[in-house]
Design a protein around this nucleic acid. Sequence first.
DNA 1: TCATAAAGTGAATACCTATTCATATCATAA
DNA 2: TTATGATATGAATAGGTATTCACTTTATGA
Lengths: 202, 202
Amino acid sequence: MLENIKHPTTRNGKATFNLILRAAEMLFLENGYHKTTVADITHKAGVAAGTFYLYFPSKISLYQHLLLDISHTIRKEIASKIKDKTSRRDKEKEGIKAFLEYAIKNPHMYNIIWESFYIDRALFREYYESFSKRYVKGLQAAQAEGEVDDIDLEIVSYVLMGITNFVGLKLILDLGDEPKSVDSVVETIIRILDHGLFQKNA
Amino acid sequence: MLENIKHPTTRNGKATFNLILRAAEMLFLENGYHKTTVADITHKAGVAAGTFYLYFPSKISLYQHLLLDISHTIRKEIASKIKDKTSRRDKEKEGIKAFLEYAIKNPHMYNIIWESFYIDRALFREYYESFSKRYVKGLQAAQAEGEVDDIDLEIVSYVLMGITNFVGLKLILDLGDEPKSVDSVVETIIRILDHGLFQKNA
DNA sequence: TCATAAAGTGAATACCTATTCATATCATAA
DNA sequence: TTATGATATGAATAGGTATTCACTTTATGA
């Protein structure tokens, strides 16, 4: 399913390769996969149509490459932000904040990630499953320390991904108007994760 | 942006109209919007290509019609299930359960709802914003009763939608293998909403 | 029975776009 | 300088698909 990209060997080749990659990224992010044509990409990159196929065997192979790229970037971003926090609770808080900030800085990232659901289902599934697995690993360590309740951590990972993804979506939908501050939103979320949603009476 | 559908007036016309609608629903659900052609739809419905355009001015107008349809169905489904619960906490629990059960029964519904993000952004936004508004209304009533913490309910609504959507997604991704039971999953979620995620020590 | 409007047909149209390929240029090592 | 592989070109190809339209059929009320 994964077609092989031909990486360039010369300085010029590498420059062209990156021009195409950056042009495609901007266009996919802006307009999505289906509304972006190969001609759009090569035009924006300033190269001929045929040049595209020197490096990428197909339009979808470029898309897959980009998705993996973005996926790694997000993970690294979050990992670097939480590595110096000690408690799981604080790691969670920082991780949520890092994700939301990334989302606001890259408001079209959903264009690439979610669209994979329709373009390459296996890739979509792999994206979230591997994200979940890494999440579970961190939560397990915390659970062993008694920091986290004894519950199904795989479901917890989807709960947490769902929260960050949808709240991030909300922030992005509001970008034109007056979006809430990331900090206030993180407070709301972490409050739920700290105490739950409902009032305790009696 | 919303094109007008021409509703049939005769018994035969109505039957044909529905044949097209059902065929399209099945195909969009199964294969998504872009992979479904108008020819596929008319073939499955057993009518000629031109018949499609007697009722629907375009492929996308049919898609929009279906999305609104499904949206109403989900809401009614959830509303009917939670109406006899008294506490907000129990309403929430039943609502989550109803959504997840609907998702499992209609595993491709995301095909229509999420894809609108790429097909008709305004419709997507409207879908989630109106879902959120209704959610907030319910939560406000509960907040007035002191049942729910004093926090930003709009964010809470996206938190809750994120949880149900992503856990539903997880259940659907697992459908081929051995999916977890809806009840056990609901327990995990409600436990977080009841007490939070972390252990209280001291 | 017949006029009429609604419903139905499906081949033709018109457009779009991913990919190919014959050809040309470039950079560099020998 | 020159041979060579990498890089680059862009017109042509090939396949697909939403929509139209001139025409036919059907149902029904007068």
